[in-house]
Computed example of a mutant assay.
Amino acid sequence: MKAIRYHAFGGPDELRIDEIPVPHAGAGEIRIAVHFAGVTPSDWKRREGQYKAFEDVVFPLTVGVEASGVVDEIGDGVSGIAIGDAVFGFGTGTVAEKAILTHWAAKPTAVSFAVAAGLPVIADTATRALDEVNIATGQTLLVSGAAGGVGTAIVQLASLRGITVIGSARSSKHNYLVSLGAIPTTYGPGLQERIAQLAPMGIDAAIDVAGSGIIPELISIVGNPAQVLSVADFSAEHYGAKFSHGPPEQPEITLATIARLCADGLFKLHIEGVYPLQQTADAHRVSAEGHVTGKLVINVC
């Protein structure tokens, strides 16, 4: 089968289409014929070697940690699912014609395979970040870099919890943030003054999604480093803020919840770009530029 792999750390040019053996589902796993795979920042950060200090690596590596598709093999001990079922979830080496999923949920009929492929990582990251930053109903949350995939999820999930969200993004994305339920503002110089005007009663917590070196300013805005969290800036803890990272703690619950919200029309994910398998490197380049609205996905089938 075809799979996107890299044989050394480096830039997107390290990615290549390889022919590799078809994997088989182990105990507690399923295999899917992949329709779409999501593109996440962890894909290109891992490829660049940013995670090598805390991950064991054996080359070559197949790209991808999330996908949607149709079940074609079921491992021992798995129940409640059948060959031919449409699913989405977390896995390994998902940018391939077939992939193993370790955690999954049924794909709602009303949700496309493309959208479903982009849901797992952002839903998990957003849910975990909101839980860890200690933000409650009726309070106000600032999300820095709110228009990307994780920001998209944080804004909507926070709004569903009754939290007022102010989201920063470039001005061209402000209408998008409004459509998600956020109050938009631009980032850059003068952010603290703009926030003071938008939230005269103050900001109760802040989440950094972009990893743009803004942690000290967010702490100044919130007034308490314990109420500031980043999902992208490894230096956050140096300032007394929190850094949130995986692996997912209750993935089945998160996946089932996001599936239900999407089916009920309470959660939407914008797919900014769909790339064929052979253009995965281009998708990585665009993702690394940091200006994606919503998600990018790879069309595998």
Rank of each mutant, 00 (worst) to 15 (best):
P23Y: 04
V34L: 04
G181I: 04
L160C: 12
G211S: 03
Q278R: 13
D56K: 15
P225T: 07
S212I: 06
I154P: 11
G151M: 07
R285Y: 02
A226P: 07
R47D: 00
I17H: 10
V178D: 00
G149T: 04
G202L: 03
G11H: 06
Q192D: 15
G118S: 03
I81D: 03
P276V: 03
L198R: 04
E217Y: 01
G148R: 00
A33M: 09
Q197D: 14
L141I: 09
H7D: 14
A288D: 12
L15A: 09
W104Q: 01
L101K: 05
T164E: 15
G188E: 07
I221H: 03
D282Q: 12
I135Q: 07
A96L: 01
T257A: 15
R161D: 12
V78G: 09
G265R: 02
V57M: 08
G138Q: 09
F88C: 03
I100H: 05
I154E: 10
T127W: 13
G80Y: 11
P248M: 11
R31V: 13
G240V: 08
D76M: 13
L119G: 10
D208E: 13
F88K: 03
V286G: 00
L101C: 02
H7P: 01
I207W: 15
P60Q: 03
D131P: 09
A3T: 02
H174M: 01
Q139F: 10
P276W: 03
P23S: 07
R31G: 03
K45Y: 04
D208G: 08
G38D: 08
G84W: 00
Y275W: 05
D43G: 00
R170M: 06
I4R: 04
S112M: 06
L296K: 00
L141Q: 07
I81L: 02
E48Q: 11
D18C: 10
Y187L: 02
P216H: 08
G246W: 06
A206L: 10
P248D: 09
F113T: 05
L141N: 11
G190Y: 11
A256H: 14
S212Y: 13
R285A: 08
A205G: 02
R31D: 13
H174Y: 01
V143R: 07
A106D: 08
A96I: 04
G294H: 02
A196W: 06
G211F: 02
D76P: 10
E237S: 15
A86E: 13
Q227F: 14
V78L: 14
A86N: 07
H174C: 01
A136G: 02
R285I: 11
N134A: 15
G77T: 00
G28C: 05
S287H: 12
L157W: 07
A8G: 08
D282Y: 01
E97S: 11
L180I: 10
T137V: 12
C301W: 13
A226K: 15
P60H: 08
S68M: 06
K98L: 10
S42Y: 08
E55H: 14
A199V: 06
D13Y: 09
T62S: 06
P247D: 01
V70C: 05
A123D: 07
T140L: 14
P184N: 10
E289L: 14
D282F: 00
G49T: 00
P251F: 04
V57Q: 07
A27G: 10
F59A: 09
A114I: 02
L296S: 02
A96D: 00
R260L: 11
I219M: 09
V231E: 01
G211H: 07
H291A: 01
M201F: 15
V155P: 13
